[in-house]
Nucleic acid binder design. Structure first.
Ligand SMILES: [Zn+2]
Ligand SMILES: [Zn+2]
Ligand SMILES: [Zn+2]
Ligand SMILES: [Zn+2]
Lengths: 570, 570
DNA sequence: CATGGTTCAATACGTTCA
DNA sequence: TGAACGTATTGAACCATG
């Protein structure tokens, strides 16, 4: 509805349906943009209404009666045959995608690629998402993996013959893991992997929890890297322990600071959380009740904070940020978008499944209100919700549900670290080597902390982590869906020993690998994409192993009972 | 009522009714939220007040005088047509529900969890989301025309868009995902559409199926249209809850009263009804089998009745009356009378046609034996035969038979309420505001019942109905032929959207209007007669619209599947 | 350019609850 | 009654093809 009455400048074109300004002929009649959209949306639909069929249609009244508006559209000669059929639209989208990635692949080679930041900036400014552009030098630097597997079609350890290999199964199978873990013969690898797995099962106390909160926020920011989304999230940054993720667990603190109330309840906007009791698996363990309302907890948190003025308090902004829903989640592209219809239905379905499952990670965490975290350990302990989320995330996946409880637990325990690493990668600031927290003015650089305890972290070089993040972000630039599917794949990573039904796990692993591959092939004609992502997976395993090792060195005693259970720590 | 006077930040929008802050345009005028709600609640009501009609309406005073507030609402241009009708609201809710379950179909698990084990255990028990069931939209619209047409030569027609297109694309397209996930080729959609289209007719196994059988059968019978043949059906009448048809549906009742056996089988003298299963469109719906014999049903009904002694039972005489053939049918004058020879042969023929068709309404109903109706809902539900009769009635008319099956169904669905209103008007007692049932010493006054639920019937004032009946009966005093032809005319009332062959429907409508006019002009020299009947038709549409609304407000769950099908209720 | 589709923030309906 | 909310629809702006 245009105010300016200089209709002449639009060549006096007027919508024959409503009289609004018209720009062109649409579907057989000169119409305005709104009537054009209206007709496209409704021409094939049945419209129910209650009128005598003679409602006047003007600019003002056109939205009053859909039936009469549609009738008028037809009466002025608009033809629904001119609306592209679903199939035609599909072809069109396909073609657009092809052209787009063709164009981008040309852009990649030009000499200008400089720093990551510039890349990111370019992403922001250049309209079409340029996710697959990889700066040459970065790609090179990622190539730490000796003899990296370039073809992931054949998952590690998984020689699942009956897997749903949808296509190109002819490609020689190589196991990424073989490379990472350096074993040379398949059997050796397997065994090795298993050993590692069993060793791994126990880690990651709580670093996960807390750091996740913070990290999550970062993800929001990163998401805004998405050219389409832009602006709203300013790039301020509030750092927080992130390495927490990897291990700041080791920081000791007065036990008094670990409040017994330091756990959480689930409180989601949509989901009513039943109150209940936390019952530890181990009889003697502490029990927590979860009967407080969120409001009560908020109040309590405030009170606590006020009562302990001497304790260094964490910036309120951080707290607020942490408690917001989805504050750092990945933002996958909407699968509703017509563009994805090119994919086979099954692939679409799996992708949707991943995104749906991932939503479990997007719930707000309220635990942060309960007690203001004063340090990293309490931050960790207050993050129980993280693990619940992880469990729910896994449960969303039918393949996971189909497993025995033992296997489910084994997978969760065995792969949690890697999943979390992927999850938090999005908010890692490569420039500062810190996790960035949006909405907070501060950036907490953790490298110093890490360096404090060289003995503890000697095995976990910050470079490992940052290299992984760098590779991951550059690889998936802007396309959070890749990271999401990666988390699902990681969940099913079948390196764990003593799985009851290893075949099913492998099948699931393969299935989601294939899904990701299909997606990448569809979206990025650049076939290198699969290779790149494959490399990233290799790095993930490397860094995961190191994080795991460090975990075992940490002080167990201060962790929340649930976390101990999670990791079989005593 | 907002305190902050920074109205500018709301773009200076001000409620044109009360001056409060406004957010958007509501029902045709820029209003505040409260006036919007007020208008929605009261626009259809009559508000009586004892003021002089000049009360000022401001933010502070707006709730003082509802009458003046409503008047101001109208005066500033708010339109009650923009308030969704009951049907539209119902569809809207339906759509929201569908979308919601679609979205959450993957949302398998309850959100809360305490310990991992509990989480996992729950996983084991919880089932994957039920696949989304989609029920097809019916093609017919039940749109109402609010205003009465005063000139019946030009019926209030809805220019059905693209009426002549016979392709299946008129069927609303549904996303493939909604229905099944497996189709892999784009054609899937197309096929689906076709399925939907053909299903439109074929499926509906039941309700429709049922009526379809009848439709087809009806056609068979038409052969026997020969006037000589139908001696068997004397003009006694098989009444049935009629008003039930129009509205008492809304009365809620314990679900126990709705016996799953409370439906009927077709058992006509001439028509052998194939036994079969009722398969609802919606997978989860109840299934009814129709294999019992009438005797069995009778027994069952008795048993049921005895088992529920607390339920108020309807007088046995009524039952008997209902089961007698044609206990309350109209008795048209014999067209053999020489008096009618003045009329042109074609007119005579048409009149005879109407009378013959009407005889289909005069067959006895046996369903009443099955289960003694305890109240209006069960009465309604037991009245399946009514609809079969209606179908046969329509099938007798050549213009109707000439239509496509889709259009036939659309007409039946769209006009059934008005036809029934006319049909039952004859037994409405204007003195008592009750329907009188012959052969019974009792008169059942329903007004009390209707008034019981004011909320439900607020829009359907008993006065509306009685005014119509009064007008109709006074107008046609003694001449049942008028009412009969009126039913035929009503059948062809072409207000329905998306008729394939709207031209033919209009032609039929006009034809019978002309027939009636010729008859009236011949019989009643008083030329006012045409005008009077015209007025009655206008009232019929008004009362029909209200009845229609009430129908949509009713508890859908309690209705017989056939009725749901008939009215596209879910 | 002309004319299709796509997107997303604004809009406008009903619903809920205190 | 009216504020707050959930959602489907709308339409301006934009993107892509030929
Ligand atoms: Zn227009
Ligand atoms: Zn209209
Ligand atoms: Zn107002
Ligand atoms: Zn007043």
């Amino acid at each position: 509805m245009y105010e300016d009455r200089t209709e002449s400048f639009t060549q006096g074109k007027v919508c024959v349906v409503c009289g609004d300004r018209a720009l062109s002929c649409n579907f057989g009649a000169i119409t305005c943009e709104s009537c054009k959209a209206f007709f496209r949306r409704h021409a094939h639909k049945e419209i129910y209404g209650q009128c005598d069929g003679s409602c006047p249609i003007t600019v003002e009244t056109r939205s009053y009666c859909r039936r009469c508006r549609l009738a008028k559209c037809f009466s002025v000669g608009m033809k629904k045959d001119l609306i592209l059929s679903e199939e035609q639209k599909q072809r069109r989208r396909q073609k657009i995608l092809e052209n787009r990635s063709k164009r981008q692949s040309q852009e990649v080679f030009p000499p200008d690629s400089t720093s990551i930041q510039q890349d990111l900036t370019r992403v922001k400014t250049s309209n079409p998402p340029a996710p697959n552009t990889i700066s040459p030098n970065s790609a090179a630097s990622l190539d730490r993996v000796p003899g990296a597997t370039t073809n992931w079609i054949n998952p590690p350890l998984v020689s699942a013959p009956d897997a749903l290999s949808t296509d190109a199964s002819t490609v020689p199978k190589r196991d990424i893991w073989e490379i990472q873990n350096s074993p040379t013969d398949p059997d050796g690898i397997k065994r090795l992997a298993f050993e590692t797995a069993s060793a791994q099962i126990a880690r990651l106390p709580d670093g996960m929890a807390k750091s996740r909160n913070v990290l999550d926020r970062g993800a929001d920011m990163v998401t805004s890297t998405n050219p389409l989304e832009d602006s709203s999230s300013q790039s301020s940054s509030g750092g927080l322990s992130n390495q927490g993720l990897t291990l700041p667990v080791t920081i000791c603190m007065p036990s008094s600071q670990i409040s017994p109330t330091g756990h959480t309840a689930q409180a989601d906007l949509q989901i009513q959380v039943p109150t209940g009791q936390y019952t530890s698996l181990t009889p003697g363990a502490t029990t927590f009740t979860e009967e407080e309302t969120i409001q009560q907890k908020k109040a309590k948190g405030k009170a606590l904070k006020e009562l302990n003025p001497r304790e260094p308090s964490i910036d309120c902004n951080i707290i607020q940020a942490l408690s917001e829903p989805c504050f750092f989640n990945l933002k996958p592209p909407s699968l509703e978008s017509k563009a994805y219809h090119v994919l086979e239905p099954e692939i679409q379905q799996r992708l949707m499944l991943c995104v749906e499952a991932y939503r479990e990670f997007c719930r707000p965490m309220v635990s942060i209100h309960e007690k203001v975290p004063q340090n990293y350990v309490s931050l960790l302990n207050s993050g129980e919700e993280c693990y619940h989320q992880l469990v729910r995330f896994a449960k969303r996946l039918p393949e996971f549900r189909a497993l025995s409880q033992e296997d489910q637990i084994a997978l969760l325990k065995g792969n949690v670290i890697e999943i979390m690493i992927v999850r938090f990668s999005k908010c890692y600031n490569l420039e500062t080597n810190a996790w960035t927290i949006p909405h907070c003015g501060t950036v907490q650089n953790v490298s110093g902390i890490i360096e404090e305890d060289n003995a503890m972290f000697s095995e976990f070089c910050i470079d490992d982590y940052s290299n992984f993040v760098r590779a991951a972000l550059e690889c998936c630039k802007g396309d959070d869906l890749i990271l999401i599917v990666l988390q699902v794949i990681t969940l099913f990573w079948p390196h764990i020993s003593n799985l009851e039904d290893v075949a099913s796990v492998r099948a699931a692993y393969t299935t989601y690998l294939d899904t990701l591959e299909s997606y990448l092939n569809m979206k990025y004609l650049d076939s290198n994409m699969v290779i790149e992502v494959n490399k990233v997976m290799g790095q993930l395993r490397q860094v995961g192993k190191k994080a795991h090792d460090v975990m075992w060195k940490s002080q167990v005693s201060e962790l929340h009972p649930l976390l101990k259970e999670m990791f079989d720590l005593r």
